[in-house]
Design a protein around this nucleic acid. Structure first.
Lengths: 214, 214
DNA sequence: GTCTATAAAGTGATAGAC
DNA sequence: GTCTATCACTTTATAGAC
């Protein structure tokens, strides 16, 4: 007896349907604690429903996780790539856009990068390959820009370092926030303000890094 | 019947004692997959012994984890602070030493920072407070240096950003290595070489960031 | 759709033989 | 010290009533 393969439109009603509530509860807990440390009972409680209902809607913990995981992943990618492919922008402008989009996304979804990093470490092949594909055009564009600029003698920095610096400067403060805030002693409000400041600062820094220090 | 509180010196023999083998197996798995996702059976298998023996030596999964965790943590701290307190060094020289020590440690123990970050997120208070204490003198020193330098008009950067940049540039490539290597398409050997290059580059970059861009 | 009750499987820990 | 066998408990998933 195959299990009630629900047709996706049982409740045309707005949102905050039961299904949605479960999924969002799952997203919070999975993103915060990971797959193994999250119990289906906790998800059910967080969603304010019964355990059995979770399986009624999503069949299994693993399937629910995969769904949340996929959506998180797409959010993460979208936050980066969406502003980059505008052909009317200069290289510098694109960098500004990327940093701004990143900071805004991470401000809204601060647990996302740790989740992605943990998942990739657990399943090196599964998700990383897909990520590579999605990012390929961006990578290609950046690399050619940087390499030609290097060959023209205008800049002097391996593309690898540029990418590492871009992501490190932008993403790390969110990933390392607990340590960083402790060490520097800044409040939550101050932290948010600093992140906003970095939208302006990081592109300037990155540009300075490009030129040969000698 | 209290459980065999072993006196620490049952086997004066060299190392790779059973106890040590279990602990190292536990370190690998805990560091890689975290507490919840690691099963005691897996640790036993990885160590080439039986499950019961794990409990004989360490009493419980939690106690074994706490031990590994503490040692990892101390390694992490030692790697950073050891070179900083040499009073004969200039500020610039200290930064060079810190970056170098960090890169060397992370090259040996690449999974350590993710482990620490995950643990801190799980128990914000438990470990973070201790970390704050250990780092306090370094923080104090850096902050006063930077603030006086800012007030003298020689530099113009919030200490928060300096710390964030220092850690972000140094640690992030190791944390984000799976993504970074995919995106940039570099081999393992190239990655290691780039990390060595960064020992020299990061201090230069940090110094450039200190001066007002205007 | 939603619940209670329970089956089925997994996992940490111990007893007891050697 | 080390093993096998097993207990005790947790957790996922399902059956079945409403």
């Amino acid at each position: 007896m195959p299990k009630t393969a629900r047709s996706k439109k049982q409740k045309p009603a707005k949102e905050s349907s039961t299904e949605e509530r479960i999924k969002e509860a799952a997203r919070r807990l999975f993103t915060l604690k990971g797959f193994a440390a999250t119990r289906t009972r906790d998800i059910a409680e967080e969603a304010g429903i019964n355990l059995a209902l979770l399986n009624y809607y999503f069949r299994s913990k693993q399937k629910l996780f995969d769904l949340v995981m996929l959506e998180n992943f797409q959010q993460f990618i979208k936050g980066i790539t969406v502003n980059f492919m505008d052909e009317t922008l200069s290289f510098d402008q694109r960098i500004e856009r990327i940093v701004e989009a990143y900071v805004d996304m991470l401000t809204r979804l601060p647990d996302l990068p740790m989740f992605i990093l943990n998942e990739i470490r657990g399943n090196p092949s599964k998700i990383a390959a897909k990520l590579q594909m999605e990012i390929a055009p961006m990578r290609q564009n950046m690399f050619t820009q940087l390499i030609t600029s290097n060959e023209a003698g205008k800049t002097n920095l391996e593309p690898f370092h540029f990418i590492a610096n871009l992501i490190g400067l932008t993403v790390f403060p969110f990933v390392g926030r607990p340590i960083l805030q402790r060490v520097t002693g800044v409040t939550d409000d101050q932290f948010q303000q600093y992140m906003q400041d970095r939208k302006r600062l990081i592109p300037v820094w990155l540009k300075a890094m490009l030129t040969p220090p000698k």
